[in-house]
Design a protein around this nucleic acid. Structure first.
Lengths: 288, 288
DNA sequence: GTAATAGTGTCTCTAAGACAATATGAA
DNA sequence: TTCATATTGTCTTAGAGACACTATTAC
């Protein structure tokens, strides 16, 4: 890799192309306990050491952007199963967004089912799922009403960055006065709040016209689970009966598996898997 | 600017951040004579000298991405009035997309009313509006049925790149055998076909739920003009009466000016200007 | 008058939203 | 039994699409 860097650098010496650093940043979303949550890491390096941030890192010269996004995801968060869905979100390149140098960051949106707490790695001192309503200045939904801060969100890093990880020991309550404040109670590093907000809005919009909500569910899921995904992402409550009629009536959206769940009370629900449809037409509509 | 470049380059020498070149590419669309057209330039430099391409160029180290997009637009195409609408489209960074070096290109989508033929400048030998159906492998619309190739689309460059411009003299017909083939009859440079396709699809989609079609119209326009924009972009024909009822019935979409056009035959039409609405709800729907 | 385009009214049908009623399990 | 969730059915209403009809200009 040092070789590739030198080769490319030689081109810059001869040419007139201003050099940029290119990074990927990841907005990884999931639904946990009825809340839309984002994966945040705690920075283990300067700048913004200790601050919450989106996972991400530098793109290698010989690496496609999509590949870099997947690599950073597994490197920094240790998620065993890679998320079902990964798509490019937008690119952020304001001049002063990184104090070190000129950085252009390509943001990606990833949607994952409810996975076990992530393991930090790479430049991340810790990684945790944080309800987005704790981080965003609340964008006109009622989601923040249902979300309470929860203790012990962070899970200490296992391998390297042990020094930085010391500041992230689990606490019995919220420890806002330590040097490792709970995520969402400190502003995100860089321009990551805006990136996160854009990612959340993208996810909310795509649930309307694509079957993407299933990316938040396991391979087999019930209509009720799917509805709770919509309710969490949109921050609304939906009529369970109309929702059921809509999703089961949309051709290609849901394929019946033929089995049913064992319930903890209430009638068992049919299991479905995602169908071949790529568009929901007519779309699901967010309530006004 | 040489100073800024040197400063940034010094940072790279010390650090471990692989240097990239960052460019902006522009998908500039307009509607002319019933066709959706894209602004293409003819490259005046290597690589792909003489090939058709999207306008664009390198981002400066001290320049925001949006600013670079606007600068390239006026530099390379000489459009006097800048387009009403400019938004980021997507970023393209495959490893081999530029033979010279690793380049990440941030694409922008611009929508313009029907302007006079553009004047080339900068690295562009020529610039012209080209119907997209002549360039794209036709994406499931009937637009290509109505579009015929037209001669003399290019307008010779006035200032520099005179040598390259010689190959772009207007022809009485299609001159496919010259060294300057008509745009759209030669494959676009780099990965620009894909970028153009993405831009066209974005524009088509946004007409559904945003009042963006007005960006293709002058400041004051009639319902008929707006309908012809929709028909050209979507490549369909719409029922004029239902369209009229829909757009005039959508709150905040159209503001009546109070005056009417003088017609060349037929009843005069009321003039409107774009209203404050930012979303069309319920959306306009493309016919199946 | 005819031709051409603008604009209104009316009908049908799809589908969303409200909500009653029924089904099927656990405790 | 009660409780909880799933699923079906029914009614009302907004709105899209088809299309007859009227309005206002140029010729």
């Amino acid at each position: 890799m040092a070789h590739a860097t030198e080769t490319a650098a030689a081109g810059y010496v001869a040419g007139h192309f201003p050099p940029f650093a290119v990074t990927v940043d990841l907005v990884v979303l999931t639904v946990r306990e009825g809340d839309l949550c984002a994966l945040l890491i705690q920075r283990g390096e300067q700048p913004h050491l200790g601050r919450s941030a989106l996972p991400g890192g530098f793109v290698r010269v010989d690496e496609d952007l999509d590949v870099a996004a997947r690599r950073e995801l597994s490197e920094e968060t240790g998620l065993a199963r890679l998320p079902v869905h990964l798509e490019q979100l937008a690119t952020y390149g304001a001049v002063g967004r990184d104090p070190r140098m000129r950085v252009v960051s390509v943001a990606y949106l990833a949607l994952a089912p409810d996975l076990p707490p992530p393991q930090a790695g790479g430049d991340a001192a810790a990684a945790a799922w944080v309800p987005v309503c704790q981080v965003l200045p609340e964008s006109s939904t009622a989601a923040n009403l249902s979300a309470q801060p929860r203790p012990g969100q962070y899970r200490s890093v296992s391998s390297r960055s042990a020094q930085a990880a010391q500041s992230v020991q689990p606490t019995s309550g919220l420890a806002e006065s330590t040097d490792a404040p709970a995520p969402g109670h400190t502003p995100l590093a860089f321009d990551h709040v805006g990136i996160l907000a854009d990612g959340v809005e993208r996810a909310r919009a795509k649930l309307e016209y694509s079957p993407l909500a299933a990316a938040f569910c396991p391979a087999e899921f019930t209509v009720g689970e799917l509805r709770r995904v919509y309710e969490a992402v949109w921050g609304v409550t939906l009529d369970a009966r109309n929702f059921h009629r809509k999703v089961t009536g949309t051709a290609g959206f849901l394929l019946p598996v033929g089995r049913a769940t064992v319930r903890q009370g209430g009638r068992p629900a049919q299991l479905f898997q995602l169908g071949p449809a790529t568009l929901i037409n007519p779309p699901m509509l967010r309530p006004a």
